[in-house]
Design a protein around this nucleic acid. Structure first.
Length: 474
RNA sequence: GCCCCCAUCGUCUAGGGGACUAGGACGCCACCCUUUCAAGGUGGAGACAGGGGUUCGAAUCCCCUUGGGGGCACCA
């Protein structure tokens, strides 16, 4: 997704087209839902495409499994021009060959048996009646191939070290190497931005393009993203799909910003960059060549930052959608009536947004605002450090607090604070201790937004009720 | 085993011969603010992997070493 983001930025910056092509040429790994997840991921991040399977375009179809005739024709053309040959070697033989090479500490690679007429005949005989074949590229034995990478400059490879790679598999499907050459040409691709693991096969691609008489696109091999252990980010190494980040309460803008800064920078100080600014300033020259370690802490910070700086109405909408989900799906307790009141939630946002980094954290922080009745505080928590072993004292104080709650003239944070500060002084108790007692009684939590704003928003009725219940608890 | 890429604070990065006592951000520490928790403010610790060159002058250019990453499939 980070690579796609760079692709998208380049397209938007230069007025080009961002084309979505589905590369599904490996039937053994085909997962039907994968494409839907891909769409959902791109959409969530706001990476819209100009051409693709669902929106169509002048180069349809955009799904490789629907373009097989094109690849097969290209393969035939390569054979005819002497740039490729049929290979009848069985997978078993190739496995054995590789194992032997590894054992002997030799470079691995195809030995070229089927390059010759005799070799092919021998392989065919071994394979038996149901002999199937692949098409391999005939790699030159000498010379070197220089690939121009817009980020890294010229990278040169000795052809002798390069393998006769398979271009067309025995099931008639192309490998990536053939398919991209054909499609990049057919679809008039100008820039190929892909991760650096493709760099070693770039010379092959260049030679395939040339053998087919195609013009070469521009290549940019961006660095990888590493896990915190510096190994490649994978399912087992803390990698998550963007959909999982979405489900954990990250904001698309924050993830976009964070990803955009992983391998690219605007200048020496800017961290928070809007989508528009990214588009405006993106350039291949400022991409970074070295791999970047994915720092979840920074993503979390950035998410919190976006939560705090977005317009309150936007945050309210986000929050409301989240809280209204079923309890089992991360929403408020099911007893809370849906839909939530927008204006009430809007009033809570300033108090809550400073205290959460993820949308998913808001539920626990906010539930007591929505719960209709009591909050069932734990008695130990209620007494806290200040009143541990002194339940009578705590109960007395809460009773005084209850009287004030019932009697205070206007139910505002300011007058509540004045009343309770006076009470603390009169009772000879530290204000903070009294406030904590009331906080736990009215919210059920020892960590909550500032007490008096909180009480104002919880309302007199429920505060009175909750104070009463707390007293009974002691 | 062979090939390729990369190398500045723990992490993301600025830097493309003199502006560098190497800047910013996350994280960390301290202080301030403070009714809890945050947020915010101020300050601090913290890096040019090593060795050779080139140059009047190297974080910046070249080479070697080391380290890290990737590739060597009828996967992409």
């Amino acid at each position: 997704m980070r690579t796609a983001l760079f692709d998208w930025l380049l397209a938007r910056k230069t007025g080009g087209e961002f084309i979505l092509r589905i590369e599904d040429t490996d039937r053994s790994r085909y997962v039907p839902t994968a494409v839907d997840d891909l769409y959902a991921s791109l959409r969530w991040l706001g990476l819209d495409w100009d051409e693709g399977p669902d929106v169509g375009g002048p180069h349809a179809p955009y799904v490789q499994s629907e373009r097989l005739d094109l690849y097969q024709a290209a393969a035939a053309h390569l054979i005819a021009s002497g740039n490729a040959y049929e290979c009848f070697c069985t997978p078993e033989r190739l496995d054995e060959m590789r194992n032997r090479q590894r054992e002997l500490k030799q470079p691995t690679g195809y030995d070229g048996r089927c390059r010759s007429e005799e070799g092919r005949a021998e392989a065919k005989r071994e394979a038996g009646a149901d002999a199937r074949h692949v098409v391999r590229f005939l790699m030159p034995d000498a010379g070197e191939t220089n690939v121009l990478d817009l980020l890294r400059g010229e990278v040169s490879f000795q052809n002798a070290r390069l393998d006769d790679s398979v271009l067309l598999k025995s099931d008639g499907f192309p490998t990536y190497h053939l398919a991209v050459a054909v499609d990049d040409h057919e679809m008039a691709i100008s820039h190929v931005i892909r991760a650096e693991e493709w760099l070693p096969s770039a010379p092959l691609h260049k030679l395939v393009f040339e053998a087919l008489g195609y013009e070469l696109p521009n290549f940019v091999h961006v660095s990888r993203i590493l896990g915190s252990d510096r190994a490649k980010l994978s399912k087992r190494h803390g990698a998550q799909s963007v959909l999982e980040y979405r489900d954990q309460g990250y904001l698309p803008d924050a993830v976009f910003n964070f990803l955009g800064l992983l391998g690219w920078s605007l200048d020496d100080k800017t961290e928070v960059i809007s989508r528009d600014e990214f588009v405006q300033h993106f350039s291949i020259e400022r991409l970074i060549k070295s791999p970047a370690v994915f720092d979840l802490e920074k993503l979390n910070w950035m998410n919190g930052h976006y939560l705090r700086s977005l317009p309150p109405e936007d945050v309210t909408g986000l929050l409301k959608e989240w809280l209204e989900r079923p309890e089992a799906a991360g929403g408020l307790p099911d007893q809370v009536e849906r839909p939530l009141d927008f204006d009430y939630t809007l009033r809570l946002v300033p108090l809550v947004r400073e205290r959460v980094k993820l949308l998913s954290e808001a539920r626990d922080m906010m539930a007591f605002f929505y719960l209709p009745d009591g909050v069932e505080p734990d008695p130990t928590m209620l007494l806290g450090k200040a009143f541990a072993g002194e339940p009578r004292r705590a109960a007395d104080l809460l009773s005084e607090a209850l009287v004030l709650a019932e009697g205070v003239e206007d139910w505002t944070a300011a007058s509540l604070e004045a009343a309770y500060r006076a009470l603390a002084e009169q009772q000879g108790v530290r204000a903070g201790d009294l406030f904590m007692l009331i906080r736990v009684a009215t919210t059920g939590r020892s960590v909550a937004p500032p007490l008096f704003e909180t009480m104002e928003l919880v309302g007199r009725e429920r505060c009175v009720l909750r104070l009463r219940l707390a007293i009974n608890l002691l």
